[in-house]
Design a protein around this nucleic acid. Structure first.
Lengths: 154, 154
DNA sequence: TTGACAAACGTGTATATGCGCTTATATAGG
DNA sequence: CCTATATAAGCGCATATACACGTTTGTCAA
């Protein structure tokens, strides 16, 4: 054997998911651009709409996103007045993120673009296959990959 | 009906893939960190190893990545001498990316970490399911989502 | 030859991503 | 009450991502 491991990039699960994410993100971004939102921003507003006010930590967990990443992602939204961050009433360390009226309006305006992207995706990929894809992605997002790592470090 | 579209983030194909990509990337990044490489960097070196010297455009296409993104991603690799960029011999506009000896060495050192990540992923997710996942992701990456958009703009 | 067009790449700008470290606040134990 | 510890969030740093625009170079036809 020439190498320890035969280096076939097409076997890398990480690369596969990242490439797909780039491709899909570009498409959804194009569809949302007329409304002045990126996909990440749309997701944040949609979550807040559906779940109501949440702290940064809680929202970050739901988004499968680092806390500091979310903290930075809300900055453009705050600047535009789409999201308001208020100090928690019971815990003054925390900051509750609220969807503003302007935020709800922007979200409503963007839904057309999102629905278009979604429809196109399912037309190309198939509704059933799309369901399978989402289920698989959810399983990946929920998988506890790093547990082993922590154990090995001990 | 309350809304034009019922706003269920769990139906968004884009969000599902992005979240999975974040989660998996973090894990692979942790496994590659001891070798001093990010997953993107590892992918680039691996591609160059397997395919030989390539131009920025060609490599970007293969990575399902914007040309300018790749151009910036190779900067840290150039700085560390892992990749060399030389002006194309036949076309002086193009730049051929070459894996250096140091780059090959770094790649070899990182393969252990990658194999560990890969093994852990397949242990958690299953080998067969992982194959399906990669096939699905490749299909997504290859799908021509934006064609419609260009047609609609006409 | 030269001028129009296309292709390859770089730059400016903005957002996205996460790690390590720090600060402010809460909570439990003594 | 006060201290040790845990938790919420911010900041510095570096990389990742892509669009709009500009520059250089190649190509082809008049």
């Amino acid at each position: 054997m020439s190498d320890d491991v035969d280096l076939k990039p097409e076997l890398c699960n990480c690369l596969a998911v990242r490439q797909a994410a780039r491709h899909v993100s570009q498409f959804y971004d194009q569809c949302l651009a007329p409304a002045g939102l990126r996909t990440t921003q749309f997701s944040i507003l949609a979550k807040l709409k559906r779940r109501g006010p949440m702290t940064i930590n809680a929202l970050a967990r739901e988004m499968v996103m680092d806390r500091t990443t979310l903290g930075r992602n809300i900055q453009p939204l705050q600047r535009e007045g789409l999201v308001a961050a208020v100090t928690g009433s019971t815990d003054r360390r925390s900051k509750e993120l609220h969807l503003t009226a302007a935020g709800a309006a922007r979200l409503a305006a963007a839904i057309k673009g999102w629905a278009k992207a979604q429809a196109r995706f399912e037309a190309v990929f198939g509704a059933e296959r799309s369901r399978e894809l989402r289920a698989m992605m959810r399983a990946v997002s929920a998988s506890e990959l790093a547990d082993d790592l922590a154990a090995a470090a001990r």
